[in-house]
Design a protein around this nucleic acid. Structure first.
Lengths: 255, 255
DNA sequence: AAGTGGTCTAGACCACGAT
DNA sequence: TCGTGGTCTAGACCACTTC
């Protein structure tokens, strides 16, 4: 139970491994408090900073989360949001629901959205390339934050060519029933296929704040391009917290 | 350039933000060395541990990587491996290439694979469910590690029902040309569709070692089920390093 | 030998939560 | 008020790399 000086692992590693074992074995369940720093010092006989280092390792692994003035707790699993290709069903749009909304309600969760910015901006390089416009051309961007319950789970920026969204509710805070895709189809711009790319990384400090992420939570960066008959209609970049999302895809075996 | 005591950010945050700005602005390019701990102490006038704390924040963000006895360097972008639905083309199998192999060679990279274990094991719960066998039933598992160049990038465990792989090279170290999917099709088990789920998390210490991950690198956990006409043929669980992979999917707009 | 990061000791003060 | 974690000071020793 104490530190073994002959062990090749450093003391902080030994403490971290011991606590991790208690977590994975279930002796410490999600929501349970870890021993406080002082208790670890007493139990293992190290300096406070060494006990802290051990707890920090577990935080970096995303196993535990500290709450200021209270203690360090084994992370609870947040409700999982499944993001799948069935999001883009025309049928759900007909029912007046957006892709995100449909996905959340299908799972019986509450839903919310904040519009952060509506603006005309110079297109970032990759957006210009995907939208098929000149580098630096002006495009319309819709930045928003999606909420499940009262916790933000997704930052999403949609980019459009100016002529695509001309005279549509996509340029206004409320896009109306069925969301922006419904507005595009009303204009005769039928969505035919999608391409998505998912990258994985640690969040920037801005994203940590915007998504209220706890340390040790990675994010997925999703880029989507929605194609109509005549070319790309929307390019989306979205950052979602990794601990509450699963991406699901189904596809037939190609030739 | 020094610490501002009136700044609400803690000194280590101020140093980290300053260094991050130098990285994102390009003044410190990928591969460049950060100022050493002692230089940071001289420049900002803090205790060594405070400078260390700043560097640790950047490591947790995955922006920098420390090399023992040398210094701390801005991370280089490793070559990106695109994992897309076109991996499973029957045509590439006909050319004698496995899904992974095809993907790598398409990008002009070198390829390797180590078989870690071939065994009959009791099915983990989710595998039993996906394969459609009883919980705890015996299944065949093929554990392997994929390499690009000499760096491991992917740990992959494939599970099969015993009757599926009976009398096939899938039970042997070398599955032969076209990989295991080619062997299944030779048996008349045609692959018809796939379902994939991607989760994002921080790696376990075992995975850090197995994939030679640097601190601050998240991983993706990919679960795939391959369906034949008569039901599931293979269930795969794969862990891939987040900093060298992009997942790509294309799909038509569903009804 | 000199420089680097990794870890540790042994304290200190602060902000915050619970009582 | 007391216990908690968050941050800091001011050193120390070690393992490793480079010269």
């Amino acid at each position: 139970m104490a530190i073994d000086p002959t062990d090749p692992r450093s003391p902080s590693r030994q403490i971290a491994d011991e606590l991790r074992e208690e977590i994975t074995s279930g002796r410490l369940a999600p929501g349970d408090a870890l021993p406080s720093e002082k208790m670890l010092v007493g139990r293992f006989g190290t300096a406070p900073a060494t006990a802290r280092q051990a707890v920090r390792l577990l935080k970096e692994e995303g196993l535990v989360v500290a709450e200021r003035g209270k203690g360090v707790y084994v992370k609870r699993q947040p409700p999982t949001i499944r993001l799948g290709s069935h999001r883009f069903s025309r049928q759900t749009r007909a029912e007046g629901k957006s892709a995100f909304e449909a996905e959340i309600e299908r799972q019986g969760l509450e839903w919310g959205q904040e519009v952060l910015e509506l603006a005309e901006v110079p297109a970032p390089e990759w957006v210009a390339e995907w939208l098929g416009v000149d580098a630096g051309a002006t495009v319309f961007v819709r930045r928003r934050r999606n909420l499940v319950g009262d916790t933000p789970t997704q930052l999403a920026d949609s980019y459009y060519r100016l002529d695509t969204v001309e005279d549509t509710a996509i340029r206004t805070p409320d896009t109306g029933p069925g969301g922006s895709y419904a507005r595009l189809e009303e204009k005769g711009l039928t969505l035919e296929r999608f391409r998505e790319e998912i990258r994985i990384r640690m969040p920037t400090p801005t994203e940590v704040q915007g998504l209220r992420l706890t340390p040790g939570t990675p994010v997925a960066e999703l880029r989507r391009i929605a194609f109509g008959a005549s070319g790309p209609l929307e390019v989306l970049e979205s950052v979602v917290s990794g601990d509450s999302h699963v991406f699901c895809y189904e596809f037939a075996a190609p030739e």
